[in-house]
Every structure is written in C-alpha cells, then in structure tokens.
Design a protein around this nucleic acid. Sequence first.
DNA 1: TAAATTAACTAACAATCGTTAGTTATGCAA
DNA 2: TTGCATAACTAACGATTGTTAGTTAATTTA
Lengths: 190, 190
Amino acid sequence: MKGERKEEILATASMLFSERGYNAVSMRDLAEALGIKAASLYNHIDSKKELLSTIVLSVAEEFTEGMNEIISSKTRTEEKLKAVIDLHVKITVEKSTDLYSLNNDWMHLKEPELSYFLDMRSCYEDNFRKILKQGVKLKEIEKLNIEVMLFSILSSLRRLNQWYSKKKGISESELSKQMKHVLLKGIIQN
Amino acid sequence: MKGERKEEILATASMLFSERGYNAVSMRDLAEALGIKAASLYNHIDSKKELLSTIVLSVAEEFTEGMNEIISSKTRTEEKLKAVIDLHVKITVEKSTDLYSLNNDWMHLKEPELSYFLDMRSCYEDNFRKILKQGVKLKEIEKLNIEVMLFSILSSLRRLNQWYSKKKGISESELSKQMKHVLLKGIIQN
DNA sequence: TAAATTAACTAACAATCGTTAGTTATGCAA
DNA sequence: TTGCATAACTAACGATTGTTAGTTAATTTA
C-alpha cells in the first residue's frame, strides 16, 4: 500500500514528540526508532514540520467537528457540557500522543498552518464560552466569571492525556463519569 | 553589585523560555534580547542548563515549602484546599514566566537536578493526595476517585499562569475567590 | 523478461547550536 | 598614577541540525 509507511512514521513521531517535545526529537532519532536512516524518511515525507502540522491539525479538526455538533444540538446546558467532556475523554483515549503535540508544541507550527490552528482554537473556545454564557442566563450554571470557568475546565480536559497515559486501571466510561462530577459539581460534600 | 546582571539574564531567559520553550531559545537569542553578544553571557553564567535549573528549582522549592506549611496546619480539609489554591495563585501572579518552564520544560533538566525536581514534585502531589484522602474519610469531600480529583485540580492550577499572563482586569483576590468556587464547588447551579 | 517504481542506503551540505579562548575598554582601589 | 577586576567584544571550535544528491537492491508492473 501507498501511505502505509507514512502512517508508521507519523505514529512514531507522535510518540517521540509526546515523550521529549518536538524540538528535542531529531530526524535521526525518529529514523532510529523506525530502524532506518534519517535520509530515508524523505522518501515518505516532505519535512519535519509536515509531521507536526499533520499531527496537530488532524486532532484540532476532530475537536472542531465535535464541538460543532454539540453546539447545534438542542439539549440543556448540563448535557452540552457533559458532551464536551465526553469528546475530550474519547479523543484522549484514542489519540493520546497526538494531543501532547497539540497542547505543547502547536507554537512551533509555521504559517499558514499556525493561523489555521489558532483560528480553530479560537472558534472552539468561543463555542465553549457560548454554552457557559447561555447556561448562566438560563440559571443552569452559577453566576461566576465566564473566563475563569472556561479556562479551568479546559485546562483539566487538555491535560487529561498526560495523566491518562500513565494511569491504568480506569475505563473510559468511568473516567468520563468521574470527570463530569469533579468538573461540574465540584468535590466538596454539601 | 555582584549578581545584578545575572538576575537580569535569568529574568530575560525566563521570559523567552515562556514564549518559545527552552529548546527553541538559543543563547544568541537570549544575548540579543539583552543587547549583548552570546559569548558575553558566560561572564555571568556557567551554562544554558544552569539557567533552566535555577528557574525551575527555585519555584519548585517555593511550592514545596508552601505545601509543607499547609500540611502541618491544623485546619479543616476545605481550608487546606483553599490554602493550596491561594499558594498557586500567589506564585502565578509573582512568578508567571518561571512557572512556564516548570510546567513545560522540566524534562530538559539534567541529572542530578532532574531527580531533585521529580522528588519534590512527587512529594508535593503526595501531600495533596493526603489532604484529599483525609477529606474523604472525614466526609468533607465527595467519595470520588482520588487520582482524578488530584489530577483535575492540579491541571487547572498549573495552567493558571498561561491564562493569567494574557487576561488582565482580574485581581489576585478575585481570581483566588473564583478559582475556589469553580474547583471546589463546581459550576452547576443546584 | 524487461522496465519502472519503491525504499533503503552513503555522503555530504549549509546553518545553527552551546561553548571556549583570547583581547580590549572601562572604572574603581591601592 | 598604577594595577586589577569587570564585562563587553571577535573569532572560532566541534557537534548536531534538517535536508539534498546520487546510488543500489528489491519488488511490482507491462
């Protein structure tokens, strides 16, 4: 098959990037992990930065699509927020290493990919903000600072992959359930 | 004065690292930001990695000390957790750029500094875990997965600096108050 | 079977990296 | 005024970076 080897390269790159960061992984490191020489990589890919942008943009698009579905659904605020958490948990489980680059190495994207990424991220956050704002208006959500709520929840969801990749013994559905309680209802017994 | 220039170098390095990441900032970049040549830096510092470890370890020690005080205080669980949040907010406001390196570039530390850092981090998390476990036992905290609670709250607190450095118009005390509500009591209206 | 494609290789490139050596101008202490 | 420490400089080092050129062996296609 055609792009079969390219998929292997992308998967290996994603794993190495997630362990050491984009800039700390050389093309020679990547090649060695695949059992070939660095120059041979260029039979399959164009450049190192192509690896990063392919990894990052693919996940970013997945988030964008997921969020668009949630926004257009006619459900209550709490259901929308739970769907957002499910989206993050699902992508975390399926694309753990890709998420590392999205969270930590997006700034090393070059134009025009950088702008494309930043646009998607802004759009995603804006949709999230809308859900929260509407929730407050409908009195389904506490009247707190929107930006603090947004940032706080997103931080936890975005870091999920780095925690999940180390911790075993918790299923996707259990993780999802726990996260919903912690993020939405807090931890203090009342 | 003696180490005056070194402080300038450290502050500038911290700022650049927080913008681009440790590996993406060269000694020539750093020198240029200070208006001198790269070689001149070595009149004041020993190496690039010394910059990183000084920045990271100094903040890590501040967290360690703060947590040790909290642990040994004879207060209720909720008060302890609020004190932890205050600690993070305070350091975020005071050492925003240093926190970036601690969160994102600690893996580029070399031994023995790396082990020292990892020990402090483990210790910090373990103390945090103890607070949560005791809270559950005393029924002051919901009986949820300890690791999920720990990871979720810490993720938000650790990312605080990257959000705070961009958002103006919120005071330290207001931020602290909002974070306590969001992290401890959740956002859903009940 | 002959031709063409694929995917590996060796060798090397220009650029950049952190760092060292040696030099020079400045300003303070003796 | 002389001597010394400070902090800048220029020049260069060996190592490593991403990448290209050219070659070769194996496999697929005609």
